[in-house]
Amino acid sequence: MSEILARAERVSRRYGDVLALNDVDLTVRAGEIVGLLGPNGAGKSTLISLLVGHRRPSAGRVELCGGDPRDPRYRRWLGTTPQETGLAATLRVGEVVDYVAAHFDRPVGRAELLDRFSLSDLVGRQTGGLSGGQKRRLAVALAFAGRPRIVLLDEPTTGLDVAARQALWDAIRVFGAEGGTVLLSSHYLAEVEALAGRVVVLGNGRVLADDTVPAIRSLVGVSRVSLTAAGLPDLPGVVATEQDEGRTHLLTTDPDALVRALVLAGTPFAGLEIRPTSLEEAFLTITARAGHPAVAAAA
């Protein structure tokens, strides 16, 4: 087994009365690209802020590159990005890169880094004047400035257009192919699917699942089949049923099989609708199956 670069052991984090992380375990090994998937408020950002040493866990232990991330020595191989595209607004793009690079032993050259993220034309611009997408590209470029071994990215593609997102994904893939380690959070299953080999699903501050991409897709790739019918036969693959104003909503992992079964059963129905569920709904399904009926009832 390869070296562990990031680890959380029974980590909890409170903000006042709110328990943002509840007894979380996570291990990221060298060379892995791990997706941290969860709806807003699941605790993804909190977990990343603990791993980069910005916050301290209320209980448990975090480790980065073999030590406490609050000690700067263990952040020498870490690459990360500012949140919310927040950069020093009056500094120029080249200056921001130089400032970050000055903290590392053998940083990537400024020209090379800017070229890799298609930022070369902007080197003399003040960051406050960049578009949202350009800021985001620069923010992500900063994560790679110090030739990191592990990169932690919190929602890296939020606010990016399709082309910029593709460019970022390519950069992450290249870094991964060169043996780099990545932990990235997202609330899009598609993004995690495109990049990660392993997915950790976080919901309400807990790890709900930690598995391969196909396994997670079968878990959270849930569709909602809605119809009006007097009564329904037993149908395959239904994970939850709701009644709402005369409509029946079925959550299922295989809508095709469900509809085939429905038609074959000869049951009269009307107003059939199938749509993919949001990740939030999928999480409620997972938590419900994990034996939390209260969560399902709240939906």
């Binding site: 802020s49 980069v52 040493g53 910005h54 700067p72 020595r73 952040r75 020498r76 870490l78 990360t80 990005t81 500012p82 949140q83 919310e84 595209t85 927040g86 950069l87 020093a88 970050v100 903290h103 590392f104 900063l142 110090g146």
Partner: peptide, 14 residues
């Protein structure tokens, strides 16, 4: 209060 400051604290410097 700006995101830049917490970011600089993730850089390897005390």
């Amino acid at each position: 209060a700006q995101p830049w400051e917490p970011y600089t604290r993730t850089l390897p410097a005390g």
